[in-house]
C-alpha cells in the first residue's frame, strides 16, 4: 500500500518544459564560455610572498647600510668626546682656508707656545716654544680652528696638567702689523671667561708687542714677554746674555732684575699689586700692557708657572 503511494507520488513529480529549456540554455552558455583566466595574477598568496620577500630585502639593505657606516662617524665609548664647538668651528669647506698669518699670539705659563692666526682669527699653526709647550699641544688639534675653540682646548689642557693654579703667571703676547686691539680684547675676555669657568685663577698679563720684538723673541724661541724681561735684566747686568736666561721663568728673570736694581732681596715683587704696569715689558713694547688678577705672591719664593708639586 505504501509502496504504491510512494510510487504514485514520485510519478507526479516531473521536470516541466520551462525548467528543461532554461537548463539547456544555461548549460550551453556555460560550456561555450571561454576558459576563465585567473582574476588575480599573481594570485593573492603570491602577492603576500612577494611583499614578505621585499620587506626582507629592504631590511637586509638597511642593516648593511648601517653596518657599513664609517666607524669614525660613530660614537665609540673609548673615543674622546669631541668639543661641542669643534664641528661648528670647522671652517666651511666651500671656501679655502686662509693660511696667511696676520697675528702671532704667545702664551706662557712655564709651557710656552705660539699660535699663528689669520685675519679671521683662525689658527694657522701652533708651535711649542719649549719642551713643556710642545707636550701640551702634542695631543691637541688647534690648526684650522677658531681662536675661541683653540683657547678653550688649550686652557683645558693646561688646567688638567695643573699649570693654571692661583700662583701661576699666565702671559699672553700679541704681535701684529695690523691693529691688534680687537684681538687683545677677544683674548682677554676669552681668558677671563674660560679661566673662571675652569675655576682657575692664575695671574694674567696680556700685552701687544711690535713685530720686531716678536721676531727677536722668535729667534731665541721664547715669548716676547720673556725676551723683554731678559732685555730688562741685561740693562742692569751687562755681562748676562739672552741665551743664559732663556730657560728661566719670567718671574725669576724679573726678580733677578729687581735684585740688580735694588741690591737686596725680600723687597716687594715687581709683579705685586693689582693693575701694575711696571713689568719688564714697560717701555719696550707698544705700551698696551695689562695685568689682571693681582697677586701678592713673591716671585722669589716660587717659580712662576712651575708645575705644582
Amino acid at each position: 500500500m505504501i509502496d504504491d503511494r510512494i510510487r504514485q507520488a514520485f510519478d507526479s513529480v516531473q521536470a516541466d518544459e520551462e525548467l528543461i529549456t532554461r537548463t539547456m540554455t544555461n548549460v550551453t552558455e556555460r560550456l561555450t564560455e571561454p576558459p576563465q583566466t585567473p582574476s588575480h595574477w599573481p594570485p593573492p598568496r603570491l602577492w603576500w610572498w612577494l611583499l614578505g620577500a621585499l620587506v626582507v630585502v629592504v631590511g637586509v639593505l638597511l642593516m648593511r647600510a648601517v653596518l657599513s657606516t664609517p666607524t669614525d662617524t660613530l660614537t665609540s665609548p673609548n673615543s674622546a668626546p669631541q668639543p661641542a664647538a669643534s664641528s661648528a668651528a670647522t671652517p666651511s669647506t666651500t671656501h679655502p682656508f686662509d693660511s696667511r698669518v696676520a697675528y702671532r699670539l704667545y702664551l706662557e705659563v712655564n709651557p710656552a707656545l705660539e699660535l699663528q692666526l689669520n685675519a679671521d682669527q683662525w689658527v694657522v699653526s701652533a708651535t711649542g716654544l719649549n719642551s713643556d709647550g710642545e707636550a701640551v699641544i702634542a695631543d691637541l688639534t688647534l690648526t684650522q680652528r677658531d681662536l675661541e675653540t683653540a683657547l678653550n682646548e688649550l686652557l683645558a689642557q693646561l688646567a688638567s696638567a695643573g699649570y693654571l693654579n692661583s700662583e701661576a703667571l699666565l702671559v699672553t703676547d700679541i704681535a701684529s702689523t695690523e691693529d691688534a686691539s680687537a684681538l687683545m680684547t677677544t683674548v682677554q675676555s676669552q681668558l677671563t671667561e674660560q679661566l673662571a669657568a675652569a675655576g682657575s685663577s692664575p695671574q694674567v698679563e696680556t700685552q701687544v708687542v711690535d713685530e720686531q720684538t716678536a721676531d727677536l723673541a722668535d729667534s731665541y724661541s721664547i715669548t716676547p714677554t720673556k725676551y723683554l724681561a731678559i732685555r730688562d735684566l741685561l740693562s742692569v747686568d751687562p755681562q748676562a746674555t739672552v741665551e743664559q736666561y732663556c730657560d728661566r721663568s719670567i718671574t725669576e728673570i724679573r726678580h733677578l732684575a729687581y735684585q740688580h736694581r735694588h741690591g737686596q732681596q725680600g723687597l716687594p715683587s715687581p709683579n705685586s699689586g693689582s693693575g701694575s704696569g711696571t713689568g719688564a715689558g714697560a717701555g719696550s713694547g707698544t705700551g698696551q700692557h695689562q695685568t689682571g688678577q693681582g697677586s701678592t705672591a713673591h716671585p722669589g719664593r716660587h717659580g712662576s708657572g712651575g708645575r705644582p708639586s
Partner: peptide, 13 residues
C-alpha cells in the same frame, strides 16, 4: 546534451 537532459530530467527532478 538536449537529448540527455530530456531523458534524465524527471529523475533529477
Amino acid at each position: 546534451l538536449s537529448c540527455a537532459i530530456r531523458r534524465h530530467a524527471d529523475t533529477v527532478r
